[in-house]
Design a protein around this nucleic acid. Structure first.
Lengths: 217, 217
DNA sequence: CGACACTTTGACGCACTTCAAAGGGGGTGG
DNA sequence: CCACCCCCTTTGAAGTGCGTCAAAGTGTCG
């Protein structure tokens, strides 16, 4: 792991729609592949929104395993916490541009503007729903978990019937609570079932989306 | 399953501290064992707080399995959703008294009072954290999951070094993504390790709390 | 006291993990 | 631009933890 330091370009303040329709003042920052965005137990300084690239948040467990809690792609906001400390680590999966806004300023604005307060709540509730969907995957066998993961990614990343996954197999495995071998075998099975096609390891063809959805429900 | 209808006693309006220090106007309602409090896809009419008894929220999956998402004990608030529909079902585990407050009235108050808005957000964030801890359990082997469950219950229910579990083995299994047999065997193993003592099936003695915590981390 | 629901224990099978090794594929340097 | 190298991925074989099926044990309530 060659941990790259956050590549802080000149922080040019700018306005950006942050949550929903709320514009917020912040700046764009660039991160290299595998660069750390924030670490567990670190003070929460910013809220983030992905402009380009992709981000993973994760927790390192005592047994050394890594549990990836979420992937974020362009348009997604993340890093919102009510408490002062980060409970997760955040890393750039690939070279990424993020929009940052100061936490304290944003929370202060929420105290004055009930629309912003409502969006903070709504966003956290959406995150809650996402985690509940995530936990649902753990109640399924391996192939169904992988199918569910692909459906989720397809919804968020696919224009036509193809997905370009930003993450490697190890990331998928740590997200689904499986090993890379099992993820790989499950993908091969889905290909044998003609539900997907594997053009390249990260380039997935959605041959039978309906079948994927059926497996993942 | 003898589904008991909610035993609506006379709804006497009363004031009750709901979230944190916020007093709210609502009423107390009683539910029998296994009584349905709300169902999936039902309109959200109330927010709830457990006065006495215990509650489980769950989702029934396509394959017929039931995934219990949370247990709530006296003092816990639940049922808060931003959207209009319930995403989970809620049931009384044992005979329970709940404090109910109207959703729309409470949300309207939040729009006027930023402290209430903040507490809505804080509470949802706490729920998010709870689910993240829950998902962490799924990344562990069976015995460790059960240990983690016991630690959680001990924190919330134990005065001295004992816990009186409100739920049966099937509930624990559906919460941990295991079978009742595996839960039972894991508990026996924990007893063999002298981490716990099983006085009665639901009455657990915490003989070595530190060992339990170690297993669950 | 008896019936029923819940729990425990045992035996066996299977899905996933582990261990091992053989392919790709993309990026960098020559 | 090509070729090499390293990392990632795939595939195979064997081991194991948990699920499944079955039956006995336990507590509780009518």
């Amino acid at each position: 792991l060659h941990q790259a330091a956050p590549q802080r370009s000149v922080p040019r303040p700018c306005v950006y729609p942050f949550l929903g329709s709320v514009d917020a003042i912040g700046f764009v920052n660039c991160y290299r592949r595998s660069a750390e965005i924030f670490a567990e137990e670190e003070q929460v300084k910013y809220f983030y929104r992905v402009v380009s690239g992709a981000v993973r948040t994760y927790k390192t467990l005592e047994n050394g395993r890594r549990l990836i809690t979420a992937f974020y792609v362009p348009g997604d906001a993340f890093g919102l916490e009510t408490r002062g400390e980060h409970r997760l680590s955040g890393q750039a999966i690939s070279a990424s541009k993020l929009f940052l806004i100061g936490r304290s300023a944003f929370v202060a604005r929420a105290a004055r503007d009930s629309r912003i307060a409502n969006q903070l709540w709504t966003h956290t509730a959406a995150e809650l729903q996402r985690v509940q969907d995530h936990i649902r995957l753990f109640a399924m066998p391996a192939r169904e978990r992988v199918a569910g993961f692909l459906v989720d990614m397809a919804k968020r990343l696919s224009a036509d019937g193809e997905v370009e996954l930003p993450m490697v197999r190890q990331d998928i495995a740590d997200y689904l609570g499986l090993t890379i071998e099992t993820v790989s075998r499950s993908l091969t099975q889905l290909e044998d079932l003609e539900a997907i096609g594997i053009r390249a390891s990260r380039h997935i063809l959605l041959r039978n989306y309906r079948a994927l959805v059926q497996l993942s429900t």
